[in-house]
C-alpha cells in the first residue's frame, strides 16, 4: 500500500475576481513523480501557488492535506517547514543577501535546528559541483543578475539543500538549453527517493524524456481532464492539447 504524501480535494482558487481552478483533485504518494501539463493559462502555476498558499490567490473551496495535516490555510513559511518546496517560474531577486547566507538561514528554519557553518559549506559546495555551478555564485546576491538558466539551477540547488518531502517544480525547464535541462533532471534524480515526491509543472515535454514519470495529469481550464502514465506526455507532444477539447 503506497503512503499518501499530498492530497488535493476539490480545490477552487481565484486570482482576484477571476476563477482559475474549478475543482482540482490530485493525490501524490511517496516515491512518485507527477507531472501537470496544460496549455498557457490553464491554472498550472496557480495550483503550485495554492499549495504554498500564496496570498495573491484566494481559495474558494477544497482542501489540501500533507500527510496527516490540513495545510490549506497554513502560512507559506509553515507549509515550507512541513517539507513542501516550490521552485519558482520567475525566482525573485533579493539584493544584499548572498545565496550562501540565505540558504543557511533557510535551512535552519526548515529543519528547526542550527546547522554548523562548516558542515553547511561542504554540503553547498558538493551540490553546486553536481549542478555545475561556479563556486562564486554562493557569494553572489540571491538571483540578482543571474541569467534565466542560472536562476533555475539556483532553485534546484535550494531544493537539494533544503531536501523537502515534496518538491514542486513550476516551469523549471522553460527557457533552458539542452545542457541545462540535463543538469536539472540530474538534480531531480539525485533528490528523488522512495520517501519523497516530485510534482513537475510544465507545458513542454523535454524534461520528461530523462525522468521516469509515474503520472501525467492534463489540466485544462482549471480542471484535470485526463490522468495517465508517462506515455500520455508523448501523445500530447505529438498531437497537442487539441484532443482534449
Amino acid at each position: 500500500m503506497p503512503k499518501k504524501l499530498l492530497e488535493i480535494k476539490d480545490l477552487y482558487v481565484n486570482a482576484g475576481d477571476k476563477e482559475i481552478l474549478k475543482g482540482v483533485d490530485l493525490t501524490i504518494n511517496k516515491g512518485e513523480i507527477h507531472v501537470i501539463m496544460g496549455p498557457n493559462g490553464s491554472g498550472k502555476s496557480t495550483t503550485a501557488n495554492a499549495i504554498l498558499n500564496n496570498p495573491a490567490y484566494t481559495k474558494m473551496g477544497g482542501k489540501i492535506i500533507l500527510e496527516d495535516t490540513d495545510i490549506t490555510n497554513l502560512k507559506t513559511d509553515e507549509i515550507a517547514r512541513k517539507g513542501v518546496f516550490m521552485s519558482f517560474q520567475l525566482p525573485e531577486e533579493i539584493p544584499g543577501i548572498t545565496v550562501s547566507n540565505f540558504l543557511r538561514y533557510s535551512k535552519n528554519k526548515v529543519t528547526g535546528k542550527p546547522i554548523k557553518v562548516f558542515e553547511f559549506k561542504n554540503e553547498l559546495k558538493k551540490h553546486m559541483e553536481e549542478l555545475q555551478m561556479k563556486p562564486e555564485y554562493s557569494e553572489r546576491y540571491l538571483n540578482v543578475g543571474f541569467s534565466g538558466g542560472e536562476k533555475k539551477k539556483n532553485e534546484i540547488l535550494q531544493m537539494l539543500v533544503l531536501n523537502p518531502k515534496l518538491a514542486i517544480l513550476d516551469e523549471t525547464d522553460s527557457g533552458l538549453d539542452v545542457d541545462s535541462i540535463n543538469i536539472v533532471s540530474k538534480g531531480i534524480e539525485m533528490y528523488k527517493n522512495k520517501n519523497n515526491a516530485v510534482l513537475i509543472i510544465t507545458h513542454n515535454t523535454k524534461i520528461l524524456h530523462s525522468l521516469k514519470v509515474d503520472y501525467v495529469h492534463v489540466l485544462i481550464n482549471g480542471k484535470i481532464v485526463k490522468t495517465g502514465t508517462g506515455e500520455l506526455a508523448s501523445e500530447i507532444e505529438e498531437k497537442g492539447y487539441k484532443m482534449f477539447k
Binding site: 504554498l52 500564496n54 496570498p55 495573491a56 502560512k75 507559506t76 513559511d77 507549509i79 515550507a80 517547514r81 518546496f85 516550490m86 519558482f88 525566482p91 525573485e92 533579493i94 540565505f102 538561514y105 533557510s106 528554519k109 526548515v110 535550494q158 533544503l162
Partner: peptide, 18 residues
C-alpha cells in the same frame, strides 16, 4: 514587494524574518 516576501516564506522564513 509581496512577491519577494512570498518567495522567502516558501523557503521557511516567517513574514517578519523575510
Amino acid at each position: 514587494s509581496d512577491k519577494s516576501i512570498f518567495y522567502l516564506m516558501s523557503r521557511g522564513l516567517s513574514e517578519e524574518d523575510a
